[in-house]
Write a protein that binds this DNA or RNA. Structure first.
Lengths: 197, 197
DNA sequence: CGCTGTCCTGACTGTCCGGTCAGTCAGGCT
DNA sequence: AGCCTGACTGACCGGACAGTCAGGACAGCG
């Protein structure tokens, strides 16, 4: 199975099933048999396309990440300015609906697995970095289109905002706060970093 | 095995071994045989004290968390004011030395396991909440002893700071930034939330 | 028609590992 | 002495599960 190969219908079904299983049972709970059943195919077919369990997990993550990037694009594109895009981007992961919720679960699971999979780790790393870079880009964009006050250090601001959103996400996941409060905190972080001018 | 029972020497050795194994092999990679070997006892003895693998994991986490709380106390007590304590508390988890590093690994692992262990989850929840409350307390303390500017909403400030520190921690863990940069970002977050003056 | 390659399956295997159990041993009590 | 108990062990069991394999179905093509 090649990472950049065009996915056939069957392969897509298997990858989607794998994503659902991971979101439901965890990365460690990913069973080839469960994926096969979910996809309505034999276990051996899953092995036919993905020789090992690890490989399947990697491809499932990449597949899901790719779909999510498209969803983010779709979410942000119609928004009027960088300020709105920044806010929506930071709030998106708090959304209890798929694909956000499922991706959140996938991340949680993959996070603990990557330590033991040298090929998975760079995937996670790149995805996270791309996410932070997107935030930094929006901070810069806000300064350019005038929708946000230009910060002294846009890069540091972007990283801190991404970090804060991530931490709040964890708190929400753990049930330490409710969604409303989580959104408030994220908005508060934006205001602190980028006071309306 | 009772949660609040005083731990005998043997039990402590087993729990320490379990912590090391989890930090090394992951929560999912926690093998009774590995713990037994590490502790220099038979596998059956581990089962004698902790009837199931899950129970061992829970006790190991609680044990470690307790030791960490003591270490935090020891770290913060000699500091002159709340401002210094807040900074050190938020920076502590970035420390590459035990017990911080080991606890960090333990958290990472337990995080993904708790979803499937209803008894573990509240332990993690309480530990996290206690941590955030401690930060909030330090923010308040800083306003009282005059070492920090009093924020409009100390609770929100505390939560945001804890969240940001947590997120930066994740980024460091993933290797997206180096320790120096991580410390800078944490300090920057404190300045943003609690400007000197 | 037969040949070949792709897609696909059921049945099987080897291994790993949590948990059990029968039993040993040291030490305290009567 | 005999008896009991708590700590401890080696050997074993049974289930779960990744990965294999021999082969079937079927299309395209000569």
């Amino acid at each position: 199975m090649n990472a950049s190969a065009p996915v056939s219908e069957r392969v897509a079904v298997i990858l989607e099933s794998a994503c659902r299983v991971v979101a439901r049972d965890g990365a460690h709970g990913l069973r080839m048999a469960a994926v096969a059943e979910e996809a309505g195919v034999s276990k051996a077919l899953v092995h036919y396309y993905f020789s090992t369990r690890r490989e399947l997990l990697r491809h499932a993550f990449a597949f899901s990440e790719e779909r999510l990037a498209a969803a983010v694009e779709e979410l942000l594109a119609p928004l009027p300015d960088a300020a709105a895009r920044l806010e929506h981007a930071l709030l998106a992961s708090l959304d209890p609906e798929p694909p956000w919720s499922e991706q959140r679960a996938l991340w949680n699971e993959v996070w603990s697995t990557m330590r033991f999979d040298d090929l998975l780790r760079p995937l996670v790393e790149d995805a996270y970095r791309a996410w932070v870079e997107r935030i930094v880009g929006l901070v810069r964009g806000g300064a350019e289109d005038g929708s946000l006050a230009p910060p002294a250090d846009p890069v540091a601001t972007g990283w801190r905002l991404a970090a804060a959103a991530d931490g709040i996400d964890s708190m929400l996941y753990l049930g330490l706060l409710d969604r409303r409060r989580a959104r408030e905190l994220v908005r508060g972080a934006i205001e602190r970093e980028l006071p309306r001018g």
